[in-house]
């Protein structure tokens, strides 16, 4: 009796408290969301307004003169379509390569309890911890005069190695060999996933006559949809937004983030020839920022549910 009474009391308080709590929580979240979103709203609003609206004090977010001219300027004067294309090619290509290669590495580390696997795991963590600035300069020197232990000079007989910089294949090669941007993280994700796969699956495959390679391709890979998706999306984000690595590898091939960093200067040169208004630069700049993040946002939005589900299923989580 007593228990039931207590239960009843508790539920009233409990649910009342719960309501207050959810209201408070909602307010908190909305406020946080606003703070987080503020720069984006601002950016978007600037990007789609005509320069004359910058002077108008009564406009806060919604511009009176909606225009795409800012984007047009980007495409015509600043060569943004090629930057967009370059970034897309590089991001997609390298993300795919990373996905494939890191899966292999993750599988090896996760499944095989060989002597060195603990050490290897530690090395993977190492790669995550090292800031790219550290390896930047040596990589640059290495790639500018690439000579694989003397083999290449022997073949070409030219005395110096080949210059691998400023070409697409280089960055693909690097990604394909597991050294892409934050590959360590990708390997980690795969490792965790593969660790969580029950042994029986493998043993069944072995009994059926698969060698290691077949086991990998026939059984493991199809099951690894979840971590693959995670790695792909995360890699896309990393490659798309990366500035440092791109600047090291390329000088003439430009990606969006590289263009973005130099946009103020570029715009000043362009606008010298047109009626110069400092506000015109701001709107075009913001349009460039929007262009930089929009594709990634769209990608994320469309794949979001799958993404979150994958995280659940990937073994990263319990």
């Amino acid at each position: 009796m007593q228990n039931i009474k207590k239960r009843g009391e508790m539920s009233l308080l409990y649910y009342g408290g719960k309501m207050v709590w959810s209201v408070l929580r909602f307010i908190f979240l909305v406020e946080m969301a606003f703070i987080v979103l503020y720069p984006f709203i601002y950016m978007l609003s600037m990007a789609i307004r005509a320069p004359e609206d910058m002077y108008d004090m009564s406009i806060v977010w919604v511009p009176k003169h909606f225009t795409f001219d800012n984007f047009k300027t980007l495409f015509e004067h600043l060569n943004y379509e090629s930057a967009l294309f370059n970034t897309a090619i590089i991001s997609v290509g390298c993300s795919l390569l990373q996905m494939v290669v890191c899966a292999m590495a993750g599988y090896s580390i996760g499944r095989f309890k060989s002597k060195g696997s603990g050490l290897l795991f530690g090395l993977v963590i190492l790669t995550i911890l090292i800031p790219p600035q550290l390896t930047n300069l040596p990589n640059y020197i290495l790639l500018s005069d690439f000579d694989f232990f003397g083999i290449i000079t022997a073949i070409t007989g030219s005395g110096t190695g080949i210059n691998l910089l400023d070409q697409y294949p280089t960055i693909y090669l690097v990604a394909a060999l597991g050294q892409g941007i934050r590959s360590g993280m990708a390997i980690l994700i795969f490792t965790q996933y593969f660790k969580g796969i029950p042994d029986e699956l493998e043993q069944a495959a072995m009994i059926d006559g698969c060698g290691y390679f077949k086991t990998y391709t026939r059984i493991m890979v199809p099951n690894a949809g979840a971590p693959s998706l995670i790695v792909f999306i995360l890699s896309m984000v990393w490659y798309w937004c990366d500035y440092y690595t791109m600047v090291t590898y390329f000088t003439n091939i430009r990606t969006l983030s590289v263009n973005l960093s130099g946009i103020k200067t570029a715009l000043q040169t362009v606008f010298q020839t047109e009626a110069y208004s400092p506000y015109k630069i701001v709107t075009v700049e913001q349009a460039a920022c929007v262009l930089c993040i929009l594709p990634i946002l769209i990608l994320f939005l469309s794949l979001q549910k799958k993404f979150v589900n994958s995280i659940i299923n990937s073994g990263l989580v319990g």
Binding site: L137, Y140, I141, S144, N163, V247, T251, G262
Partner: peptide, 18 residues
């Protein structure tokens, strides 16, 4: 003729003999 942004890339390039 090539168009570059100076500072780091010039120095890096000179260092790497490029």
């Amino acid at each position: 003729l090539s168009l570059v942004s100076a500072g780091e890339s010039l120095i890096k390039a000179i260092l790497a003999d490029r």
